[in-house]
Design a protein around this nucleic acid. Sequence first.
DNA 1: AGCACGCCGACT
DNA 2: GTCGGCGTGCTC
Length: 841
Amino acid sequence: MEMAKVIVDVPSKDTDRPFDYLVPASLRPWIEVGSRVGVPFGHRTLQGFVVSLHPRPEMDTSKMKPIQEVLDVLPPLSRELVQLGEWMKERYACRQITALQSMLPTALKGKAERYISLPERSDTPDETEGLFSLQPESEEEERILGFVGQRGEVTIQQLSRAFPDQADVIKTLLARGMLSEHQQIKDKLQKKTMKAVELAVEKAAAEAALGDFPAKAQRQREVLSYLLEIEPLLPISQKELLQTLGVTAGTVKALADKGLIAIKDVEVFRDPYRGRHFKPSEPLVLTEEQQRVYDKIVHKLDERQHGVFLLHGVTGSGKTEIYLQTIQRCLQQERQAIVLVPEISLTPQMVERFKARFGDRVAVMHSRLSDGERYDEWRKIREGRASVVVGARSAVFAPFDRLGLIIMDEEHETSYKQEETPKYHARDVAIHRAALSGAAVILGSATPSLESYHAARSQAQDDFAPVLLEMHSRALGNRLPEVRVVDMREQLREGNRSMFSIPLHEAIAARLERGEQTVLLLNRRGYSTFVMCRSCGYVAGCPECDISLTYHQKSNNLRCHYCGYAAPSPDVCPDCGSEHIRYFGTGTQRVEEELAKLFPGIRVIRMDVDTTTEKGSHEKLLQQFRDKKADVLLGTQMVAKGLDFPDVTLVGVITADSALNLPDFRAAEKTFQLLTQVAGRAGRHQLPGEVVIQSYTPEHYSIIHASGHDYLSFVKDELKHRKALHYPPYCRLILVTLSHEQLPLLVRTAENYAAMVKKEADRRGWFGSLDRFAADALDILGPVASPIPRLKNRYRFQCMIKWRGTMDAVSLTRDAAEQLQESVRDSGLAISIDVDPQMLM
DNA sequence: AGCACGCCGACT
DNA sequence: GTCGGCGTGCTC
């Protein structure tokens, strides 16, 4: 019989490998590489993915179990995606099942459902027959058997709801073979859930139970008294409970079996969405510059070979039209295309441009879709009803079978890096996926990441290094806007203490007079609105995460934006009792207030996390601005992205350098990118544009070069710094974060870890300063406390590994982590590995 | 991750 | 002796 290798849905070290199963002849026609199957695993049935098929296995098949069921008519993964999963496992040090699961909509994360039924009559007597009675021995048993017999098949949940406190009787019936159980995978077509725990009995009853608990059940007692003590109004997360009390899931389950507590699946969140209609559009005539770029890409498409292009084009140079026309070519070849855009710019206007050109053949994947809607879009792709997908990061896994082109717009955006496991970068995944299917990749940006630009310029004999394509002029022939940098220190010296400099003030006034519009950007990165006491310096912080709480005006409370902790905003200082406690930071509200003071009657639309949380509010605000219902659009980063309004002739940046001093080696790059993006918002049409940038460090090269629209000079300066300090693109990084509840143990363990990595690298002759001219080099920095030193009651330490060369540094760090996990018996230790991290703070 | 197995300390 | 909690190890 044929056999299949299957990756099962258990994300742990021991099970992170294929398991062998027999392929029953009856299922054979439905099983391919990439099929989702239900397989017996230990005492349960699990979901798994077929990663290979073997017609005539040479190994011993006697111990193998057969695949139990096939879950889909069309395999949800292609051979190529399965291969991509293997690559991700090595590249990002994640579990293979985690990589595969991340490619699919959550609707396809099936879980076994346990069904109870009456056993089939068999002629051959069961061996248990002599030992047990096959007749019901009590009225209770009779009632249960009757209930099951009447329905034919029931779930455990139904049965235990109908017969509460009869778990033991049911178990006995199962053991005697009078009831039989089978498991089947059921798709989770609903929302995201987590296991949560709550008391199942009245408080008094629980306290009573606590009293006459067996002395032995110490752990259970702890759990129960903890629940009584904190008295949660809602079920609390099982995971957190286990971490807090240092108990195992078994203990919690024992309590649940006793009926004292209940374990439930609780919905985490959900949000709906609605579609729209689109006017058709025709291809535009390309400029000479666009045509040259187009020809190069199409040449590669026609070869049907893997190729990567870095399309560097100034804002307004018409990159989108290049995307549209290359996609058209790709479709003519009967191949399919993926368009990746940053989550934040995946607006209806953006989608409209693609739908207008390609109609129904466009599927859209964005994070605001509900699981059900996302599943529908996914099926549209899988079943061949769509041949173009426009989507955020995860759309790179769209289940096309004849992929010809992957486009990544705003290639430099950090949101292409997934911050949860698997911590992949969509750019790298895109390039590797394209290599597997002979597709072309276009990375487009006005401000390419230094990694991509450096790779393109150095043109190593690496297949994956992009070919550089440049567009220097705007498609409509208009000029880039004038940029004026205002030195805010000088303003202060001249006695202007307002957050608006005189030039910006005058420029806004002029726009108001002429009936033109203004976009104001508040670079809030690096600022937060925290609460501080001006008498004693007390700052309200999160009790579990050691970071300051953020003030939210709408709800007048303080929140931790890492763990979600919320507390009412204090009226008096909790430390010294002073009333001089207030919130600090340059919030958009404050700018709005000041604008109203300076320009009475000014109409402002404010766009920030507070005003755009509601579904659709983002688009609504932009539409109002487009309809000229306001003079000023004021916002954070989100106003810098891809917006295109004809009457905007002024862009003001309130503080350009607020992010420059952050402990992040990409601070200058991010500042330059943001300023360049936002400057590109002005004067895109007939009216000439003006940009005013306010800065406290106007001499900084990122600000000087942004004001001169001079990407090349910026790159030159920035690369000098990167080279001197050994940062990407001159080396690669791996960030290893260790966390534990106990600080001393954590520190010891982290030091151990660094020593282990050092020792192993040394053994291979890699370890040492990157200053040396060795081809293979590795340095490890730390351990040091993480930028977030404590999160959800766990201390965090990190090591930064810098490396270059052809070595496998990822497996080195991963192996060391696993070795360490084994040596520290305490399971409370968590180690996270982030390959090529984006967020360093 | 779950679930059975088996060790070992508190009860009849 | 035996019941049951809780750590250990395995899953094709």
